[in-house]
Amino acid sequence: MQSSLAHRPEHRAANPAIAVEDVSFRYGGELPGRPWTIERVSFEVACGEVLGIVGPNGSGKSSLLKLLAGLLRAGSGRIHLLGQASSDLSPITLARMLAVVLQEQTQVFPFTVAETVLMGRFPHRQAGWWNFGSEADTADDLACAQRAMAETDVLSLADRPVSELSGGELQRVMIARALAQDPAILLLDEPTAFLDINHQLDICSLISRLRGERQLTVVLVSHDLNIASQYCDRVLMLKAGRLSHIGSPAETIKPDVLQAVYECEVVVDAHPQTGKPRVTMPMSPS
């Protein structure tokens, strides 16, 4: 369509979208004796791949996502994004490459949906001191916001204040803002948390659609094993900060693996439509 919407094919072919090499991290920085939140994790995500990160509560899923997003700094090890070391990238360059939708997204002020989506254009804007912060949204910004809102189906909400949206609507607006950033990599933290099944389905089919239309590389954190199984190419399982298993849903969503990671019995059968593994709780022994 136009240069800013093209997805830098020269980077895609040569390098994986994300390469994590032996990354460790703990809160509280260099203080010895603190437990590792993430310990010696290595993996790669290919361009256009959808990777799901799953694991028990407190296993470090969100921390790993924030490390990928550059919001946390790895204590040791390295993260490469499209072949470039993420610690060498300026915040603006990083923001043009990678967008993230986080869980905490309380909306305090009544910005409209369109205004919120246009904030995704911030890293692409050339701030000039001469216009004292009054620079207008360019035609490019509007076109990107338009596309993002159309993809997430929030165009009809454009003039609604975000503080009045429902959970499902707000989540789609947040994804639209991330898409307006025009990233090559999209990170999502629990994109379906607190949504009813209808809106969960909405978000999941949106993610599938996006990887088709934009060739986005997607990494999503989810506590829902079935979403990981159905919508991800590969699943990464964390246990106590360590990478326990990584592989296709068929390789990872198995009773013995789940038993090892979650330390409980589950029932795994095949999804009637896709044949992919499906996890259900067993009948309680009482």
């Binding site: 919001l71 990083l94 923001a95 993230v100 997204q105 919120t116 911030f122 890293p123 009054s134 950033q181």
Partner: peptide
């Protein structure tokens, strides 16, 4: 006031929360 005016677009993004603002390229 000129200084605050200059930061107006940044203030917009800061209302989205600390981590989101950082992910949009703000120190």
């Amino acid at each position: 006031t000129m200084c605050l005016l200059y930061y107006a677009p940044v203030l917009n993004v800061l209302t989205q929360g600390e981590d989101t603002a950082r992910s949009l390229g703000i120190d």
